[in-house]
Design a protein around this nucleic acid. Structure first.
Length: 602
DNA sequence: GAGTTTGAAACT
DNA sequence: CAGTTTCAAACTC
């Protein structure tokens, strides 16, 4: 341990504002030697940026990762130097706030409303309550500090993570950020590559996410809450450097924690965890080289075990929710808000199995993609034919003029045709929606030729479809560079039209899925009700009629409708009354100018 | 509730 | 960057 020079101590004194002289006194008189503290605080004397202004400051928040009902760090714009600059607000301040965090710790639960030495006055806290003694809650050891929130109601000793010690707090934040600019970022990132294939296999809640740094566990087998991955309810990833990891997809030890008739028996689960760690359960045969077992995408998870088992508490579900949002939070100066999480309604003992678990098969997705691609190619064909026809009619001058003034009309016409083709005939109200969307189309043509997502999609789906189509004038030739053969505008019109069609179809599919999910839920509900003795329910049910079924089942389905809002037609296209029916694309007759033949199976 | 274990953070 | 120490949460008894 190095000596702290006088200079450093001088810096220390000079950096700390006058108002904090008392605090410095506190520091010196605390149970930590002054020099040691000086080192620990690692004052830099920069005195510049403060926590809230740092672009990287976000509530990384174990709160956020786990149980927090939502904490938001708000920067006061008016008083940038004010110690109160950082204001911690519960998001959605509707009272009553959810119970204080740390439901998983009986210990802290019992403490949660007790007055403590020098922490800020007790009130319900949105984050885990810390018990720091030596860090003054100014290091990442402190969960509150790490979460970017003030200690409030904690059981900490000599706490400086509060408004009164804002100055030293800021210094600490600064130091922490110097050491690690990502210190306050979420530790768990979304994984775009999470495979969901094993969801059905286990049938439980799938956690997508990846620990940014990865864990380094040695003895816990990553099956205890010591492990940050396990705690966050995610599988270990290639980022981890853990030893003897058992927190990977397909791990027998891991599955043993969550399966079997004892799945809800906490004692059993903990026993299983211990056994797994000591190798008593299963013989996975893995050599426990973490790398060999790391999945590429985070996957299935179902909560830590032990006394604090999440199987009996909602935090894990919060985590799931938070994981999903944490990945997005990097673009926001604020930690992700978790307001009104559908899973936050209360503790549940039941494992969650998606209603769509049996409905969506990988092949379906492939087929859907194929259908969409075929659809777009048909649209492109039609537009190409259309355009060539119009060329013949109009002389070149008119054509060029039309491209500047009459574009919108032409485009609209094309869209109407496509919309007709898609949905047969659309009713008036739908059309008005459609038209309103079109009003922007021509502008979009210039400003936004094609969304990157669509471009990427088209690049991915690529070629066989489009190239095979051999479009007459190349207007819809699939060219990821969106260049060349045709004037940009007409090309982008085609793309826009394709995009619109694809999105519309995709929306329809999602709606269909929702309906199927609802149907399934209705079935399950009816079944369970009938099991309890309510025999009349099942007779009301018919299997495949979509939304109307929500009126049945003694109000049970009413809730379904609430929980699964249908995706609105938005501003994409006319909505066909039969949108819920499966799509079937019929071959396009040659020389046909109009719409692609899209029919619906009844 | 005290003591132990664990792994992240801090430090050398 | 690796090794060590500190720290506080998780866990055990």
């Amino acid at each position: 341990m190095g000596e702290v020079g006088n200079q450093e101590m001088d810096n220390l004194s000079s950096v700390i504002p006058q108002t904090d002289s008392v605090e410095l006194g506190n520091v010196v008189s605390s149970d930590v030697p002054a020099k040691k503290l000086a080192r620990q605080l690692d004052f830099t004397g920069t005195g510049g940026a403060v926590l809230p202004e740092h672009p990287h400051f976000q509530s990384r928040s174990r709160c956020q990762e786990s149980e927090s009902p939502a904490v938001m760090v708000v920067q006061s714009q008016s008083q940038p130097q004010s110690p109160q600059q950082l204001v911690v607000l519960p998001i959605g301040t509707k009272a009553p706030l959810p119970p204080a965090r740390k439901p998983d710790s009986p210990k802290s639960r019992s403490r949660s409303n007790v007055e403590t030495k020098d922490a800020t006055p007790k009130k319900q806290k949105q984050c885990k309550l810390c018990n720091c003694k030596h860090s003054r809650c100014l290091k990442l050891y402190c969960e509150c500090f790490a979460s970017g929130v003030y200690c409030d109601g904690c059981n900490c000793t000599n706490c400086h993570n509060n408004v009164e010690h804002e100055a030293s707090r800021r210094e600490a934040v600064e130091t922490t950020l110097e050491r690690n600019p990502n210190a306050f970022r979420p530790k768990i990132a979304n994984s775009p590559h999470g495979t969901r294939e094993s969801r059905d296999e286990i049938g439980e809640l799938v956690m997508l996410g990846k620990h940014n740094k990865g864990c380094h566990c040695k003895k816990s087998g990553c099956l205890k809450k010591y492990c940050e991955c396990f705690q966050a309810n995610i599988l270990c990833s290639e980022n981890c450097k853990c030893m003897d990891c058992k927190n990977f997809e397909g791990s027998e030890e891991r599955q043993a924690l969550f399966h079997g008739d004892h799945a809800n028996n906490i004692a059993y689960i903990q026993q299983a965890a211990n056994a797994a760690i000591t190798g008593a359960i299963g013989s996975s045969g893995y050599a426990c080289l973490p790398v060999s077992k790391k999945r590429k995408g985070p996957e299935l998870g179902f909560g830590p075990v032990g006394k604090d088992s999440p199987l009996n508490s909602i935090p894990q579900l919060h985590q799931a929710n938070n994981i999903m949002s944490s990945g997005m939070s990097t673009s926001s100066p604020f930690p992700a808000a978790h307001v009104g999480s559908p899973v936050a309604s209360g503790p549940s003992k039941f494992s969650f199995r998606s209603l769509l678990a049996d409905l969506i098969q990988p092949n379906d997705l492939k087929e859907l993609c194929s259908v969409l691609v075929v659809l777009t190619s048909e649209v492109a064909k039609i537009q190409a034919e259309q355009r060539s026809d119009e060329k013949q009619i109009n002389d070149p001058q008119q054509t060029s003029r039309a491209s500047s003034s009459g574009d919108g009309v032409q485009h609209q016409k094309a869209e109407e045709k496509a919309a007709d083709g898609e949905c047969g005939s659309s009713n008036q109200s739908d059309r008005s929606v459609h038209d309103s969307s079109n009003s922007n189309s021509s502008d979009m043509t210039r400003a936004r030729p094609m969304s990157p997502g669509t471009l990427a999609l088209m690049c991915d789906e690529q070629d066989t479809m489009f190239m095979g189509a051999g479009l007459a004038d190349g207007s819809a030739a699939h060219d990821c560079n969106t260049s060349s053969h045709v004037p940009d505008r007409s090309l982008s019109e085609v793309y826009i039209e394709q995009e619109r069609i694809v999105l519309t179809k995709f929306r329809d599919c999602l709606n269909k899925l929702i309906t199927l999910g609802e149907i399934k839920e209705t079935k399950l509900t009816s079944r369970s009700e009938s099991e309890v003795g309510n025999q009349n329910q099942s007779n009301n049910f018919t299997s495949n009629s979509g939304c109307q079924q929500r009126s049945i089942s003694n109000g049970v389905v009413k809730n379904v409708a609430l929980s699964a809002p249908r995706i609105p037609p938005a501003c994409t296209a006319a909505h066909h009354p039969n949108n819920d029916l499966p799509l079937k694309i019929l071959p396009v007759p040659k020389n046909r100018k109009s719409k692609p033949q899209i029919d619906r199976e009844v």
